[in-house]
């Protein structure tokens, strides 16, 4: 069969497939059959659904013939492009449903954290040990504070947590601080995770550095004698924030260790698989940090409630975080949800 005859016989298929693929992605009229309430509406085009797969298979077949018979590179390119585009439409992933997000936070995230409990423990220690060590050291020797906390910041600590600092803060400052916490803290969590790619070194650095910083900060607070004001401030959001830092560090370590110890996989494969496994932990940390930003901006800084109320609520939030990570999404409870 010559190329001309081949083209004459099959170009109808190609034109039809081209029209279907070029059709604007519009929602179908019969909404009931379409997946309703999807967050990411799938690419729907007005055509008979059985037509696309059939046309796609035919074009694949014709592409193979064109290659085998050397009908020419231009025809091959056209069919390759058509097949590629149809392949994309046919094999796209399922649209996300709002339910998926709830399931992610309540099931996938805590489960992944429990599966990585060893790494989470390591990350927590990498954070807590420098913090406690630094606190003890700074309590013993005041000079050590400025080795990690810049002197200007250390000078401001007194204003922030002293008797005058917490009183009059306008609402606009709360909102500004909320924006800052989102931008800064969630960004730090993401950076901690991503820099873990380099054999875990980046994640370890961020964990240890943040530990040192907070230890020194608390040490300065101790010297000033503002413990009540400070700890009643941090206990509220600390549950979510500190946990999220440790978790994103654990996710970063997961990434780095996949290169160091890929097992019986290539390093590239290990990296892809472990990246996918680590992502829910990073996503969950981000949600935690958004919650923490809300608490830190609007609850922790509030001067309406007495410290005792803040300690009570803060303790309850810590318990909530532990319950979420240790119990949510367990087999027995999944069906009830």
């Amino acid at each position: 069969m010559s190329r001309e005859i081949f083209e004459a016989r099959y170009s109808g298929d190609w034109d039809r497939l081209e029209r279907i693929l070029k059709a604007p992605a519009t929602r179908r009229k019969d909404e009931k059959q379409a997946p309703t309430g999807t967050l990411f509406p799938a690419r729907l085009t007005p055509y008979d659904e059985s037509e696309l797969p059939e046309l796609y298979r035919r074009v694949c077949h014709q592409l193979a013939l064109v290659r085998n018979r050397h009908y020419g590179a231009d025809l091959e390119d056209r069919l390759n492009g058509l097949a590629l585009e149809a392949h994309e439409v046919l094999y796209q992933s399922r649209a996300l449903h709002p339910r998926d997000l709830a399931r992610f936070f309540l099931v996938t995230f805590p489960r992944r954290v429990r599966e990585e409990r060893l790494l989470v423990l390591v990350a927590t220690l990498l954070f807590v040990v420098p913090a406690v060590g630094m606190l003890i050291a700074c309590t013993a020797s005041h000079d050590l504070v400025t080795t990690v906390v810049p002197p200007q910041v250390a000078a401001q600590i007194g204003e922030m947590y002293g008797p005058s600092g917490r009183e009059a803060r306008p609402g606009s400052t709360d909102l500004a601080m909320f924006g800052f916490y989102i931008y800064n803290n969630v960004g730090i969590a993401f950076r901690t995770f991503a820099s873990g790619l380099f054999f875990g070194i980046g994640a370890i650095f961020f964990l240890v550095y943040n530990g040192f910083f907070m230890g020194a900060f608390a040490g300065e607070i101790g010297h000033l004698g503002y413990e009540t004001s400070f700890y009643s401030f941090v206990i509220g959001h600390g549950s979510f924030e500190l946990t999220a830092i440790a978790l994103s560090g654990a996710a970063g370590l997961r990434l780095g260790f996949s290169i160091l110890g890929p097992g019986n996989r290539t390093r590239a494969t290990a990296l892809r698989e472990e990246g996918r496994e680590a992502l829910p932990i990073v996503g969950g940390s981000a949600v935690y940090l958004v919650i923490a930003a809300f608490l830190e901006a609007f609850w922790s800084s509030s001067s309406v409630f007495p410290p005792s109320a803040k300690f009570a609520v803060g303790t309850a939030l810590w318990i909530l975080v532990f319950l979420h990570l240790s119990l949510s999404g367990r087999e027995g409870t999944r069906n009830a949800a």
Binding site: Y91, Q92, S93, L96, F190, A194, G275, V282
Partner: peptide
């Protein structure tokens, strides 16, 4: 696109863009 030519989903896109930080270093 994914390595097999299929469209990227949320997981793949989130991963490649989070790791932009590592690429920047």
């Amino acid at each position: 696109v994914n390595g097999d030519g299929t469209p990227v989903n949320l997981t793949a896109s989130a991963l490649r863009n989070l790791l932009r930080v590592a690429d920047f270093m």
